[in-house]
Every structure is written in structure tokens, then in C-alpha cells.
Design a protein around this nucleic acid. Structure first.
Length: 252
DNA sequence: AAAAGCCCCTGGATGC
DNA sequence: TGCATCCAGGGGCTTT
């Protein structure tokens, strides 16, 4: 399943060859979460101007309009096929006339800061955390302060920063928030470099798997020894999702 | 406003 | 061996 690194790896794997290509046909497969918003036939012949990413959405700019892609999609172009596939139906592809059109705004409006961009500011991050009473893990997942930190990378970033996942976000001191800010950037950047995490079914367009999961410090390692101190890793449930942490390295 | 819970769907793993 | 059950995952939506 794609978190930010998987979407970014996918984007990088085809952006070079597909920019400038013309759309030959689009195959939507099964019904997705929402209707496309235009007919598939209308897309044929349009030119791909750019491929961007916002959070976990892929934005495909066409010479007229854009597509917001969230998995599960196949597009044949004059320069190759763009394929995103996840067996489940969490995905969506939405057409919008522009990024300011209601269809696009609805999906993009609430998104927080891009963690790998210069706009991800540590002070602002801390200021926004101070306004939240929710536990820090949930705040990271929510995506309205910072986007792209999914379940795997939330646990990993908190481990790197030495922060207990159940700590209230508002209680993070400035130095600890700064440390978490750096940890998020670091873990996501390293994951992109490793091709993402292939836990069950992710692979980029060219079929390559990711290897970041092999470096996971805590995710999926319940009961195993912490790679730093040897203490058994704990697994807990937060908001119907699993969280992994080291009770010794992440005491508070 | 923020927080918490629900729900979508399918395949792989596990359990009987 | 076959069938039932559980689980994972993102995030929009509804309810508190």
C-alpha cells in the first residue's frame, strides 16, 4: 500500500518518459471509490504536461485539465503505459478542469505541509502540534499538519525521535518537535531512496519492489529485540491501527 | 473547532 | 483439504 515514499517512487519511475506523451487510452478497471468525473474517451489525445505529487495523490497535468490519482489506474500513452494497481478499492482517479476546480479542491484543500519540501518548517510544525490534544501518532496519520506519513513511517519516525506514540501532541517540547520534524524527513527520504516498502503488494510501474521494510526499526517487529537496546518491541492499537514502539527507547 | 469512530474492499495469513 | 475469520491499509464522512 502506498504511503508517500511509494507514491513518490512510482512517480519517479515514469515521470521522465511520460511527460510530453499523448494519452492513447485510459482503463479504469473496476469501479473505484468515486466516479472519474468525465468520460474515459474524453481523455484520449490529451498531452501529459507534468506529473506531480501532493501527499499521497499523484497529479497528472494534461494540456487540458488534470487527473488526481490515488491508486488503481492504467493509462496507455504514446510513450508507454502508466500503471497503478492495488487489489483493494481504496483508490480513486478524479478528473478536474484545474487545481482550483471544486473536484480538486475538495481532495487537496485540507492537506498539510509536504514533508520533503522546504515549506516543512520545524517551528510551524511545533506550533501546530501544540494545538492538538490527540496522541502524537494519530496527529501524524491525520495528514492535516504534515502529509504522507502513513502507518509504517509514523511508527518509524517516532522511534527515531525517541517519542512514545501515546504522548499528547501538545506536550511535545520544542527540541523534541524539532527532532521529530527531522526524523520524518529522514525516514521518508531514506524510504524513497530504497524504493519504498514492499510489505505485500507494492511495486512501482516498472515492477520493482521496495526494500525499506528490511530497515524497519519497529514496524512489524512485535516481540523482537529492539535494534538499539534489545528490549522487546511492543505493539498497541491506536484508532484501529497498529503502532509499534520500543518501551525503553521511547519512554515518554 | 477538534476528536473519535465508521466504512469502503480484497487477498493473504491464520485457525479450526 | 476446505472453509471461516481476521487483518492490513488511506482518508472522507458522520457523529459527538
Amino acid at each position: 500500500m502506498p504511503e508517500l515514499p511509494e507514491v513518490e517512487v512510482t512517480r519517479l519511475s515514469f515521470v521522465g518518459e511520460i511527460t510530453g506523451a499523448r494519452v492513447v487510452s485510459v482503463c479504469m478497471g473496476k469501479a473505484l471509490r468515486w466516479p472519474l468525473g468525465c468520460s474515459v474517451a474524453q481523455l484520449a489525445g490529451r498531452t501529459v504536461r507534468a506529473v506531480r505529487r501532493r501527499g499521497k495523490y499523484l497529479l497528472i497535468d494534461l494540456d487540458q485539465g488534470l487527473l488526481l490519482v490515488h491508486d488503481h489506474f492504467e493509462m496507455l500513452t504514446t510513450r508507454g503505459t502508466l500503471r497503478l494497481n492495488d487489489p483493494r478499492r481504496f483508490g480513486a482517479v478524479v478528473y478536474a478542469d484545474s487545481e482550483d476546480a471544486p473536484e480538486a479542491r475538495k481532495l487537496l484543500a485540507r492537506l498539510g505541509m509536504e514533508p520533503l519540501s522546504d515549506g516543512f518548517d520545524a517551528k510551524q510544525f511545533h506550533a501546530e502540534l501544540k494545538l492538538r490534544k490527540t496522541v502524537i501518532k494519530q496527529v501524524l496519520l491525520a495528514g492535516d499538519i504534515v502529509v504522507g506519513v502513513g502507518n509504517i513511517y509514523a511508527s518509524e519516525a517516532l522511534f527515531m525521535a525517541g517519542i512514545k506514540p501515546t504522548l499528547s501532541a501538545a506536550k511535545l517540547s520544542r527540541p523534541r518537535a524539532v527532532k521529530l520534524h527531522a526524523a520524518i524527513r529522514d525516514v521518508l527520504a531514506r524510504a524513497v531512496a530504497k524504493g519504498g516498502s514492499t510489505l505485500r503488494d507494492f511495486s512501482s510501474t516498472n515492477g520493482e519492489r521496495g526494500y525499506f521494510q528490511l530497515e524497519a526499526m519497529v514496524y512489524g517487529r512485535e516481540g523482537q529485540a529492539c535494534r538499539v537496546c534489545g528490549t522487546p518491541i511492543k505493539a498497541i492499537r491506536q484508532g484501529q491501527r497498529s503502532t509499534f514502539y520500543c518501551p525503553n527507547c521511547q519512554k515518554t
